[in-house]
Nucleic acid binder design. Structure first.
Lengths: 266, 266
DNA sequence: CTCAATTTGTTCGTATGTATG
DNA sequence: ACATACATACGAACAAATTGA
């Protein structure tokens, strides 16, 4: 038996979906380039060690997703326009993070006053006396890609309620001269969508997600901003500069990009 | 109809697996605590809007995983020992990264000489003249959790072939006084296991993975180390210090925690 | 100890989905 | 396209174990 059939025992997921997911991976990784003709049904049958109909079911799945189109007598081709993945760069420093989300527009913002404090991890500082809870959804091209569940210390929220209700909170906090940010950190794990998340983000239940837990602590050690943000897994990308001396000079880039030429702290 | 049934149309994955994945999430998130008795079959039927048999299939899945145990007449209980998740911290600075993998022991190391250069991203510098390819598997408790596919510049490899063959390459490079590391970065995206990955890491085909692309560039702008590392998604956790001034002082910790607070002071 | 309530375990019939050759 | 086999899912009824009154 083939490797795939052995793995099938491990997974319980219908075979044609597994085949489809392997083929999807090949398209998205570029191993099957846009416009290219892929292997014939017979070759795919042999490669995956499955029946012809199963291959066709897998192809049907990818046709519905717009990644493939099959033509009788000619063959099966990869679509020219494959949707871009990993377009959302999750920044790893305070300044870049603020900058990257400055112009985001949160949708479906809801506010709850006087909510219980958020669950805090060991390094998340101490809870504030009162929190408000802001929930919102981020969209791109009319498609939701992240859910924000934010606990904001009430005394911070009241410094500029209108702004917090209509624009991202982190830039708003950075703009508040009264507030001194002492520590800020973020953790990321890979999870899977529960029914509510799946529904709000329009993905399947159990689809992989990136779960970010972002905490901002003021000079008194109080967690003034505690956000749990869930991203679709296929849109996110992290870029980590291990030495902290900026990216390597690119092909046509100048030899010495000393820092970030963008905006300076104000 | 319920949210779950609507989402089911979107997913094509068997219903009982979706139910199981929601229940698994609840256990792993602590919403269902270890030892706790969970809702009765009838309540779960109503909540998920599925038939009794479907709930039981989901429970059977989680029983096989050791997360639940059911007892006739009494109820269904969460196991006391639920396996730990996210135990692998992927460090985000050079020094911490080196330190964290120093004592790892790669298994099943294979070497290929004179391989074609690795695919390089725009900021990955220039390819070296010759590369060797080292592949290995990382284990914990006899379970594989990551696959390493490393392209190492041949002239670097030859500085200490024996060490590169039996211990992690990054600490080995850091230890080489002849080598000056100018840039080092890492990108992370979420992918899914292809058949070979699934087989070597003993997960299902299509299971989510964390794909790391780590590049080390020397002072001549040459990519001397290009690693593509695939982790199981459920073991990995990133911790990003946005301000770069260390973690916030913990509850019982002194104001200046020197490094790793292994032992706690009370 | 028995009874009743509660809860999981099992079985049947039916319909649809998945996979093979 | 067809015939076959097995998996998935439903609803309903019944059986068996546990608990407490």
């Amino acid at each position: 038996m083939s490797k795939l059939l052995k793995s099938y025992d491990r997974s319980r997921i219908p075979l044609y979906i597994q085949v489809a997911s392997v083929m999807r991976q090949r398209i998205q990784s570029g191993q099957w380039a846009p416009g290219q003709r892929i292997s014939t049904l017979e070759e795919l049958e042999r490669e995956f060690q499955v029946a012809r109909v199963t291959v066709r079911q897998a192809i049907a799945v990818l046709q519905e997703e717009g990644l493939l189109h099959a033509q009788q007598g000619r063959g099966t081709y990869v679509s020219d326009l494959t949707p871009s993945r990993h377009w959302f760069k999750l920044e790893t420093t305070w300044d870049e993070l603020i900058e990257s989300i400055r112009d985001n527009v949160p949708q479906q913002m809801t506010l709850e006053q006087d909510v219980p404090p958020p669950p805090l991890q060991p390094n998340d500082g101490q809870a504030a006396a009162h929190y408000v809870r802001l929930r919102s959804v981020q969209y791109r091209d009319n498609e939701p890609y992240s859910l924000v569940n934010l606990h904001l210390a009430q005394h911070i929220f009241e410094l500029d309620p209108k702004r917090f209700m209509r624009s991202p909170a982190l830039p708003a906090i950075a703009a508040l001269s009264q507030v001194k940010v002492a520590y800020a950190h973020q953790t990321l794990v890979i999870g899977s969508a529960d029914p509510e998340t799946a529904d709000r983000m329009m993905v399947a239940i159990g689809a992989p997600t990136a779960e970010c837990h972002c905490v901002v602590i003021d000079e008194t050690g109080t967690a003034i901003y505690v956000a749990d943000i869930i991203y679709r897994s296929d849109c996110i990308k992290l870029q980590i500069d291990l030495l902290g001396n900026g990216p390597a000079p690119g092909r046509a880039a100048p030899a010495k990009p000393p820092r970030r030429p963008k905006a300076k702290q104000s």
